[in-house]
Each structure stands twice: as C-alpha cells, then as structure tokens.
Computed example of a mutant assay.
Amino acid sequence: MDKTAYTVKVGEATPAAGGRPAAGPVYRSIYAKDGLMRLPQEIHSPWDFFSGAVKKYPKNRMLGRRQVSDGKAGDYVWQTYEQVYQKVIQIGAAIRGFGVKPGAHCAIYGSNCPEWVMAMQACNSQGICYVPLYDTLGRFAMLAHTH
C-alpha cells in the first residue's frame, strides 16, 4: 500500500468554547502547504479551468466508472476529457432549454458519479451557479430546498 502523504496539517484542532462547536485540525494539499497557489492569469472561472484542460489533454482519461458483473467490481471504463466536454455542452444547452439563465441557480441532486460532475460543468459552461444537493444529506435537505 502506498503510504505517500498527499496532505499536511496546517492548523490544530480547536475545542468547543463560547458557544462555538469544536473543530478538527486543518489540512491542505501538499502542493499548497505554504498557502494557496496562484492561478494562471488566463483562468477566471471554473469553466476556464475545465475547458483549458480539455484543450490541453483531450485524449486523457477524465471520468471513470467501474463495471459491475455478478456483484463484483471490475475494471474502470473511462471517458476522455473530449468525450466529457461534448456531453457537458449538450447538458448545458438542455439546462438553458428549461429556461435557466446565466447567473441563476440550478440545484443538482445526486450521488458522487460522472453524471454529477458533468451536470456541474454544464452549469459552469452556461454561467449558471450550481447548488450541490448530495444524496447523503437525506430527505430533509431536499424538503428544505423546495420551499
């Protein structure tokens, strides 16, 4: 098993005090241990970051899903950046087709999966603010966001 550490502790845990709950220690990526990295000047949004990666690495693997056969997880089947980009553009057009305009909010409910990532990037492609509603939040979270 690879024991390489990808995070480093940059802050200690704090106990509950003055009506504030306790908080665990703070960790960062080893690449940002001394502070957050500066973004390249050409990146102004999450869409710039993603579409730039598509241009730079179109044939590289981006999103994968393990195939399950007879209840056993098998190998991953991958989609490339280019394949994901094409789907993202179509999903973004569909979201706009439902009347969601740039600057509006769009809730995305679901589990962690390639489709969730594509829906998020579809919103980014259209200048729409996505609101993640994770399946682990349960039924109460969905009811709270419908009113």
Rank of each mutant, 00 (worst) to 15 (best):
R139C: 03
A73N: 12
R139I: 09
W47F: 01
G71C: 03
I91D: 14
A13V: 04
Y57H: 12
G24I: 00
Y31M: 09
H44N: 15
S45M: 13
T146S: 06
G52A: 11
A13I: 03
P132N: 09
G71E: 14
F140R: 15
P25K: 01
T14N: 02
G110F: 14
G97D: 13
V100R: 12
Q83L: 00
V84C: 06
A16I: 01
E12P: 00
K59R: 08
D2V: 12
Q67L: 04
W116Y: 15
D70N: 14
S125P: 10
P15Y: 00
D70T: 02
M1Q: 14
V26P: 01
Q79D: 12
A107Y: 10
A5V: 05
V84L: 09
P40T: 03
Q121P: 05
P114W: 09
T136L: 08
Y76V: 01
M118D: 05
C106R: 02
H105V: 00
G52E: 09
M37T: 07
S51Q: 13
V88A: 04
M1I: 15
A22P: 02
R66C: 10
T4A: 11
T80D: 05
D48I: 09
R28A: 07
G99C: 02
S111G: 12
V88M: 00
I89H: 04
Q67M: 09
T4P: 02
L137N: 05
C106A: 07
K101F: 13
K33Q: 15
Q41L: 07
G127H: 07
Y81M: 00
Y81H: 08
P132V: 06
K9V: 01
I128D: 06
L133W: 06
P46G: 14
N124T: 15
K101Q: 10
F49C: 10
S111L: 09
S51I: 04
C106Y: 15
A32W: 15
A144D: 09
G11A: 08
R38S: 10
M120R: 10
W47G: 02
A93R: 15
Y6N: 07
Y57E: 01
K101S: 08
D75L: 02
A5M: 11
N112R: 12
G11S: 04
Y130W: 11
L133N: 10
H147N: 11
R28M: 02
Y27D: 05
M1S: 12
A16S: 08
S111I: 06
D34V: 01
G92K: 04
W47I: 00
A22D: 00
L137S: 05
D75C: 04
G99L: 11
G127C: 14
E42Y: 03
A93H: 14
R96F: 03
L39F: 04
T146I: 13
N124A: 08
L36G: 15
W47T: 08
C123W: 12
Y85N: 14
G74P: 11
Y134H: 12
E82F: 02
H145D: 04
G92A: 04
P132F: 13
